[in-house]
């Protein structure tokens, strides 16, 4: 049963040094506040899984929280490089980062396999590419019926999944809408989970009969963090702050400016700082 806690308490209970952590959100609903909390609590030696590492993992990698990254696209969307990720891979700063590289299709399939309780994901992928030469986890199986050779990779089974959603109710049921990414799969594939939400409501109210809901008994911890997806967005609440993504390019380019930014905006702040970005766009939410 989901426990409703503060974000600091949830991270303290759910995320341990050395864990494999999947923080998901495909451009939308990226759990930035939770990322900051993990950095503040000084977690180390994490294996980070995420389709699109994005700014959230640029920050975790730059602050030395990660030993390994499992990913499929490591850029600043529409802007360019993730400089901290590049510095780690190209120069080993702040320390060497092991990488396990996949395609989006592979990552999405691996989460789905994890949620489905399967040991591996099977799909038609990677044909003719060089990925298998650098990633020994990319193998193949033969279809027992047709003989077709298919790609196989291990299922994602993270110790902890961390996502952000629009709403939870008081029983810890979680509702999300808009671009859904692989959040549902990540939570169902993980041993433990933290969901930050824009708001905790008494009742979800009128909704589609097929609304995307993670029942409270599948969720570990729920923490209310309004604005917690900033600078990504929460459909119906606030838009993506594209300028922040553009400005991150300059902030993160040099080690000093990055560390100074992290000190002022993460280490010396708390999750409540995100509330300044919280909004509710009535038209979209109704």
């Amino acid at each position: 049963m989901a426990r409703i806690l503060s974000l600091a308490e949830a991270v303290k209970e759910a995320v341990c040094d050395g864990d494999t952590v999947a923080m998901e959100g495909f451009t939308h609903l990226i759990p930035h506040a939770a990322g900051h909390e993990i950095i503040r609590q000084g977690r180390k030696h994490l294996t980070l899984i995420r389709m699109t590492p994005d700014l959230i993992y640029d920050q975790l990698i730059g602050m030395g929280c990660a030993d390994k990254l499992v990913f499929s696209w490591g850029g600043n969307p529409g802007v360019g490089s993730l400089h901290r990720f590049r510095d780690a891979v190209e120069n080993g700063w702040p320390h060497k980062l092991a990488i396990e590289e996949h395609s989006h299709a592979a990552m999405a399939n691996a989460y789905e396999a994890g949620a489905a309780g399967l040991p591996c994901a099977i799909f038609r992928g990677y044909r003719g590419t060089d990925f298998h030469k650098v990633n020994p986890n990319i193998r193949s199986v033969k279809c027992p019926f047709t003989g077709e050779e298919l790609a196989a990779i291990p299922a994602h089974r993270p110790d902890v999944a961390v996502i952000h959603a629009q709403r939870a109710d008081k029983a810890g049921n979680v509702m999300l809408e808009g671009v859904l990414g692989v959040q549902k799969e990540a939570v169902l594939a993980a041993k433990r989970s933290i969901v930050t939400v824009e708001e905790i409501v008494d009742d979800f109210g009128p909704r589609s009969l097929n609304a995307v809901i993670l029942p409270g008994w599948t969720v570990g911890y729920v923490a209310e963090v309004p604005g917690g997806a900033f600078p990504s967005y929460a459909q119906g609440y606030y838009p993506r702050n594209n300028n922040f993504y553009k400005e991150w390019d300059a902030v993160s380019r040099e080690r000093d400016s990055f560390l100074a930014w992290m000190k002022t905006n993460v280490l010396e702040k708390g999750p409540e700082a995100f509330a300044a970005h919280a909004r509710k766009l009535r038209a979209a939410a109704e």
Binding site: L180, V182, P239, R240
Partner: peptide, 20 residues
Amino acid sequence: PLSIGDGELCETALTTVAVP
């Protein structure tokens, strides 16, 4: 869109499915 998943893409779509 600046990113592949901007809200604009979702709001103007016929429907939006999960990534898997």
